[in-house]
């Protein structure tokens, strides 16, 4: 038996809520939403961690402009704190080099990271999930048992087709789904909301496409002043901070 798997519950026991930002498709804004949610929660005084589980294309460090910090080694590894967020990413160990990992490697890297990371007490651990509904999502459900999902889509029919699969799978796995965020809206179409109604999952927010967002990435202060960040703060954060029984 793998003792690393057995210790994961212990490592997460002082975290009130684990929220995975997921959605299936790449390029729909999961990482920017995960990073901005973490920043917004920290700004409100919550104890927050951010775990980038996109092992092959980690990007939250780029969004937050993080490049010169490293975890401390103290009976495991302790994520460094920046902008009020305890930040953990495989990028500490891979640098800028490509990490061509296959499924089993991704599972093993995730087990290792979860077994040795000491988060301490957190109100929220925000998890940036990679695209796809394969190993990382299945292992998130298997290994981080208290994970709730915040599901992201865009108005695109392409994203919509995949997000339906994500919602179906999460329901089959009996994973709690906090709700759906429709990101990058460019018209007032209610197609996404209507199409996803059958899943009976709260539709939390529509977030307009923000042309100014791209140029703020890497600069947290400017990022937090965008309309995008204001939408997250006003529409999504209140849904995450209300009592758990009401949120799910």
């Amino acid at each position: 038996m793998d003792p690393r798997v057995e210790i994961i519950d212990e490592r997460l026991k002082n975290i009130d809520r684990v929220i995975a930002v997921s959605g299936g498709k790449g390029g729909i804004g999961k990482s920017v939403i995960a990073s901005t949610v973490a920043l917004s929660l920290a700004k409100r005084g919550h104890k927050v961690g951010l775990l980038d589980l996109d092992f092959t294309s980690p990007s939250t460090h780029v969004i937050l402009g993080i490049d010169d910090i490293f975890p401390e080694e103290e009976k495991g590894i302790v994520p460094p704190e920046i902008y009020g967020i305890k930040f953990m990413s495989i990028v500490y160990y891979t640098g800028d080099g490509p990490s061509p990992l296959r499924g089993l490697d991704i599972s093993n890297a995730m087990i290792e990271l979860l077994a040795i990371t000491r988060w301490g007490n957190l109100d929220f651990l925000i998890v940036d999930s990679p695209p796809g509904i394969g190993d990382a999502t299945l292992d998130t459900v298997r290994l981080m048992k208290k994970t709730e999902f915040l599901v992201v889509t865009t108005p695109s029919r392409v994203a919509l087709a995949t997000v339906k699969k994500v919602l179906t799978m999460l329901k089959e796995l009996k994973s709690p789904i906090i709700g759906i965020v429709e990101n990058m809206k460019i018209t007032r179409s209610s197609l996404v909301q209507e199409e996803l109604e059958m899943f009976n999952v709260p539709f939390l927010a529509e977030i307009d496409f923000d042309r100014k967002l791209e140029n703020t990435l890497g600069d947290v202060n400017r990022l937090l002043q965008t309309n995008f960040a204001r939408s997250i703060a006003n529409k999504v954060i209140p849904q995450l901070t209300k009592p758990v029984s009401a949120a799910i």
């Binding site: 160990y93 891979t94 080099g97 990490s99 990992l101 490697d105 890297a109 290792e112």
Partner: peptide, 12 residues
Amino acid sequence: SIHFIPETAHVY
């Protein structure tokens, strides 16, 4: 790096 996360062997 490999010591902490053995899968980073794929990077190096």
